[in-house]
Each structure stands twice: as C-alpha cells, then as structure tokens.
C-alpha cells in the first residue's frame, strides 16, 4: 500500500520523516530502524517526525515514537515531533501518555526553527 510508506528526506542538517495516516505495527516498528540508519547515513544532526497525517496514535505507536527520540538522542541528535492533530493530542493525553521531554511543534516550519535554535553547532552541555 503506497500510503503506508514512511517517507524520509534530508534538508540541510535535518532529517524529515513523514508518517502515513494509519500505519500497521510492522510499519511503526520499521520507523525505528529506518530513522536510526538514515540519521547515521546522512550524518543528520536533527530529526523532524512529521505526524500531521496520523489519525490514530495508540499506546504502541506513541511508545515507539518516544523510544525513537531517545535512541536518536543517544546518537547525538535532537528530535522534534511536528504536526500532531488536536484530536490525537487529546486522545493520547487521555490514554495516559506523556511525551516526556520530547519537543513538539505545530508544524514542520516551527520544528525547523526549533532545531535551529536549540542546536548550536558547537560543543557544550545541555540546558
């Protein structure tokens, strides 16, 4: 199914990953592998996870997204989750899910700003 594909593109230092509307579990699991390998391959410093098409995020999907951001962090990258629909945000919160310290943005545009702001290309400690 064409709409079940994860799309991955790189713009400058940032990897942009777009999730399909209703991915099955194996597509969600593939997200982790694909993203981590692409981060390394393209030497990207930031990741934008565009979930604006996503209509349903259950606990499995949400957990995989948060896990992926942690793994990217381990590799030295920063993640911003972009475009979460209001209905998805309400539902995930009611389900009991917290996205912890994961950064979020209204859309990809803001996410790029956020990565630019928060990712000075020099060594230093966070916070």
């Amino acid at each position: 199914m064409a709409n079940e594909r994860i799309s991955v593109i790189k713009v400058r230092e940032t990897l942009m990953v777009t999730m399909p509307a209703d991915p099955d579990d194996s597509t969600i699991t593939a997200l982790q592998e694909e993203v981590l390998q692409a981060m390394a391959r393209y030497e990207a410093s930031g990741l934008i996870l565009d979930i604006s098409a996503v209509e349903t995020m259950d606990s499995f999907f949400a957990r995989t997204v948060v896990e992926t951001t942690r793994m990217v962090e381990l590799m030295g990258g920063k993640t911003v989750i972009a475009g979460m629909r209001p209905s998805v945000a309400i539902t995930a919160t009611q389900l009991g899910f917290t996205f912890g310290n994961t950064k979020t943005a209204l859309d990809v545009d803001y996410a790029l700003d956020l990565l630019g702001d928060r990712h000075p290309r020099r060594p230093g400690h966070g916070r």
Binding site: E55, D58, S87, V88, T91
Partner: peptide, 8 residues
C-alpha cells in the same frame, strides 16, 4: 475527537 477516542 470522539471518533479518534473510539478508534484508539
């Protein structure tokens, strides 16, 4: 929003 709740 309710549809999303029910589907989830």
């Amino acid at each position: 929003t309710d549809v999303t709740r029910i589907v989830t």
